[in-house]
Design a binder for these strands. Structure first.
Lengths: 226, 226
DNA sequence: GCCTTGAGTAAACGAACGTTCACTGAAAGC
DNA sequence: GCTTTCAGTGAACGTTCGTTTACTCAAGGC
């Protein structure tokens, strides 16, 4: 049987070539992942998720438009999958910090450094979160808010476990972490917008971020529940 | 996907009927305003600006697609006009607060109340700002960041003039206001997402917002520049 | 080994899109 | 009053869109 179609550029995932690389289920998961990556890549070029078309996404993923429906009902469903994936990335930040432990000296600055690296290492996930948390489809926005909320709660729990700010009630601790998360995500947008190779701007941004957090924690340590 | 869009009532601005209502220049400005309002209204239905089509916007404004080009080169240019308009709305908040004066007792809570009313009274502008500051076209995002920055600087200036937190350096005051603005805009999204007629949720949100600001200002009053 | 399953394909559809063009006709300029 | 200007029109164009359809053909079940 002759093939009239020029082979697709993305040979790595062409089933005709990659036939023996994986089981059927694994290949399906891989295509699904390619669809999600394709959407993220398009967003990485300065596009909002809600401006993407289904055909664009399938094109970026190297499949035909109709294939999309084998994996998602529509773009919103893909968006929700991206929320979940990005939420996992967010959580991994806490897990890494927890595992490494944080020295009490210069703790804030160190945490900000870790965070900055994490954001840069998972650029597209943070771009997605920061971009869709405000605008975009309500269903996606709400899912992101839920992820954020869980993240803040987990952070509060960690602080409790570490014995930080023992004077604060759980409610206040949670409020504090909500504020910290907002500040973090705002900083993520700024980190991602940084022009490359501008150490001056970079230092300024990090310094400002550190100071904001220092201010917040200074307030927290002076806080008295009544 | 089919979308049912209710066409704007043409009669109010139909030149054939409204012929005597204004000069040519005034009517041009009115159409321009209708285009901007049309875009905002569509966003008010849960759409991101970058997902709007030129034809949709003209439909909502009650003009033919080709008319669009008499006012804007493309949708980005309309977006930048919306940034400017929304920035003016943002500034008006400061002006109003300045004019009314703020009582020193329960100042934070009062300010939050004023802010909440302002956000609700200019729902679409805040929706636009909060929605496009993170995602969307880079050119628009940057313009919003610039507006925010000016707003924060103006706020710092006002605080200086009022003699609040006299111990802080200008730089620190500016950093503080940046943090406050971030927190405000985040709260705007939450205010706008509130389900109607839910006083319980509303109080919770306002309380949380007030506490976050209180924490921040508590930190500011304990801050020592070195 | 045959049969079923289902991920991915190719083609087609009507709808919506951005943009252009020549036009109309009231307002503004003279 | 005659002429010029220009905001808005209506039609047309080539694209791209989302979705459906019948299909192919390995993988996996029996």
């Amino acid at each position: 049987m002759t093939r009239l179609v020029v082979p697709r550029a993305k040979t790595a995932l062409n089933p005709i070539i990659a036939v023996d690389l994986a089981s059927r289920g694994e290949r399906k998961l891989r295509t699904r992942a390619h669809l999600m990556e394709g959407a993220l890549e398009l967003m990485g070029q300065g596009r909002g998720f809600s401006s993407l078309s289904l055909r664009e996404v399938t094109r970026a993923a190297g499949v035909v438009p109709a294939s999309f429906y084998r994996h998602f009902r529509d773009l919103d469903e893909l968006g929700l999958a991206l929320v979940e994936e990005s939420g996992a990335t967010l959580r991994r930040l806490l897990r890494d910090v927890r595992r490494d432990g944080i020295p009490l000296t210069d703790m804030l600055r160190k945490s900000v450094q870790i965070y900055k690296h994490h954001v840069e290492a998972h650029r597209l996930h943070f771009l997605f979160i920061a971009g869709e948390r405000g605008g975009g489809a309500p269903v996606i926005r709400k899912a992101i808010r839920t992820e954020e909320s869980h993240f803040a709660s987990e952070m509060a729990q960690d602080m409790r476990a570490l014995g930080l700010l023992p004077g604060l009630s759980s409610e206040t601790l949670r409020m504090l972490c909500g504020l910290v998360v907002t500040t973090m995500i705002n900083a993520a947008t700024e980190i991602l917008d940084l022009p490359r190779q501008q150490p001056r701007l970079e230092k300024e941004l990090v310094d400002n971020f550190v100071r904001q957090l220092r201010l917040v924690f200074l307030g927290a340590s002076a806080w008295r529940d009544r």
